[in-house]
Amino acid sequence: MKLILNADVPNLGAPGDIVEVKDGYGRNYLLPRKLAVVATRGAEKQVEQIRRAQKTREIRDLGHAQQVDSQLRNINVTVSAKAGDTGRLFGSITPAQVVDAVKAAGGPLLDKRSIDVPGHLKTLGKHQVQVRLHPEVTTELPIAVVAS
Rank of each mutant, 00 (worst) to 15 (best):
M1P: 06
M1Y: 02
I4P: 02
I4G: 06
N6D: 06
N6P: 01
D8H: 08
V9H: 06
N11H: 12
G13P: 01
G13R: 13
A14M: 13
G16C: 05
G16Q: 03
G16F: 13
E20W: 12
V21I: 10
D23Y: 13
D23S: 12
G24E: 01
G24R: 15
G26Q: 02
R27A: 01
N28S: 12
N28H: 08
Y29G: 05
R33D: 07
R33F: 07
K34H: 11
V38T: 14
A39N: 12
T40D: 14
T40M: 06
T40E: 12
K45T: 07
E48R: 05
I50N: 03
R51S: 00
R51W: 01
R51N: 04
R52M: 07
R52W: 00
A53S: 06
A53R: 13
Q54N: 14
Q54D: 11
K55F: 03
K55G: 02
T56I: 10
R57L: 14
R57H: 08
E58I: 05
E58M: 11
I59C: 09
R60V: 14
D61M: 00
L62T: 08
G63Y: 11
H64K: 06
H64F: 00
Q67I: 04
V68E: 13
L72W: 07
R73K: 15
N74W: 04
N74K: 15
I75Q: 03
V77P: 09
A83M: 11
T86W: 00
T86S: 15
G87L: 09
R88H: 11
I93V: 15
T94V: 02
A96H: 03
A96E: 04
Q97C: 01
V98Q: 06
V99T: 05
A105L: 02
G106R: 04
G107W: 10
G107C: 07
L109V: 13
L110T: 05
L110A: 09
D111H: 05
K112M: 08
K112H: 11
K112E: 03
S114F: 01
I115T: 09
D116V: 13
V117K: 00
V117W: 11
P118Q: 13
G119R: 15
H120V: 12
T123G: 06
T123N: 12
L124R: 12
L124P: 00
L124Y: 10
G125E: 13
K126V: 15
H127M: 03
V129K: 03
Q130A: 04
Q130H: 14
Q130I: 01
V131C: 04
R132K: 15
L133M: 09
L133G: 07
L133I: 05
H134A: 03
V137I: 15
T138W: 07
T139K: 08
E140Y: 07
E140A: 09
L141K: 06
L141Q: 12
A144V: 14
V146T: 14
A147Y: 00
A147C: 08
